[in-house]
Computed example of a mutant assay.
Amino acid sequence: MAIGITVITTANCVRRFLQTDEAAIEQTIAGLKRSSQMFTGKPLIVGSAAQTEVFARASIACVEFEAARDLSAYVASPLNLELSELTPEQLAQPVAGEVEGEHFRVRIDFCFAGGHVLHTLAEGIRQPALAERLMNLTSFLERPVMNYRSAQGGVGLMNPAAITRFVITPGATDLPRDAWLAEVA
């Protein structure tokens, strides 16, 4: 088995790595189990005999992992939300978001420092209490990490501290009282 690792920085630099050594793969899987700490602490170091790269954790926008086996069981799961990166074909289609009963399906575009944009489909269970729905809306940027299924079928981890804004389409039906109501010009 092999694991492909993609690191996307806030400088919009994309670096790809491949692990084929079983011991290295197991170490990466152990790291995924502690994914809530991915963007804190020591720098991320990726090394080989040819070179070593060191990434400041605060400058990482996303890290994606691709493997033949499903790695989603190893990453921390967000509260009531499943995020999936949109493929180019899905991006070309009109947004088909909906809030139906207790379920919702919306598009969320996460914009990171440096210009990287992660286009996702968000699906989940709508919280019954208004206070919980508002907390979910405002707490995205306070989480230590958010995971998503990558367009290639692997898993990704995004650094909420590197997000500059996110856009929900269609618009959220419940907004905080201090939200500004205005149309995009």
Rank of each mutant, 00 (worst) to 15 (best):
S48Q: 08
L71I: 10
D70G: 04
M146C: 09
Q93S: 14
L86R: 09
A24S: 13
T6C: 05
R133N: 03
A2D: 13
L79F: 15
I3S: 00
P43K: 02
L137P: 03
L134A: 02
S36T: 08
M158L: 13
Q37A: 11
L44I: 08
T10N: 00
R177E: 11
A68V: 13
R143F: 12
T52K: 13
A129Y: 12
C13G: 14
T138V: 14
R69C: 13
P128V: 07
S150H: 08
L181N: 14
I45R: 02
R69P: 04
V46Y: 01
R34V: 00
E142F: 15
D178M: 15
M38I: 01
G41C: 02
T9N: 01
S84W: 04
L181K: 11
P160G: 05
M146R: 10
L130W: 07
D174T: 04
E82C: 13
P176I: 08
L32D: 00
V167W: 11
L134V: 07
E66C: 09
A179V: 07
S84M: 11
L91T: 10
M1Y: 04
G4M: 04
L79M: 15
Q19M: 10
A68I: 08
T87E: 02
E22G: 10
E82A: 15
S150K: 07
A162R: 04
D174H: 12
Y74Q: 09
S59E: 15
A68F: 08
I125F: 10
A23M: 05
S59C: 15
A23Q: 10
A131R: 13
V95S: 07
Q90R: 06
K42S: 15
K33T: 08
N147I: 02
C13R: 15
M135K: 12
A113E: 12
H116V: 07
E22T: 09
M146P: 01
L44N: 01
T169A: 10
A30C: 02
M158A: 07
E53W: 14
G154P: 03
A179T: 14
C13L: 15
R165M: 12
L44M: 11
I125M: 12
N12I: 01
A23R: 09
L141K: 12
H119G: 04
V63T: 08
E85T: 06
L83D: 06
A23G: 05
L71P: 03
D109F: 05
H103M: 15
Q19G: 02
P176F: 06
V106F: 09
I8G: 00
V75C: 01
Q37V: 02
E22C: 06
G171A: 14
H119Q: 11
T20V: 07
E100Q: 15
T173C: 08
E22W: 07
L86G: 04
Y148H: 05
S72R: 11
I3P: 00
W180Y: 13
A179R: 11
V54R: 12
E98Y: 10
Q127I: 01
R177A: 14
T87F: 05
E98D: 09
E22A: 12
K42A: 13
V145A: 03
N147T: 10
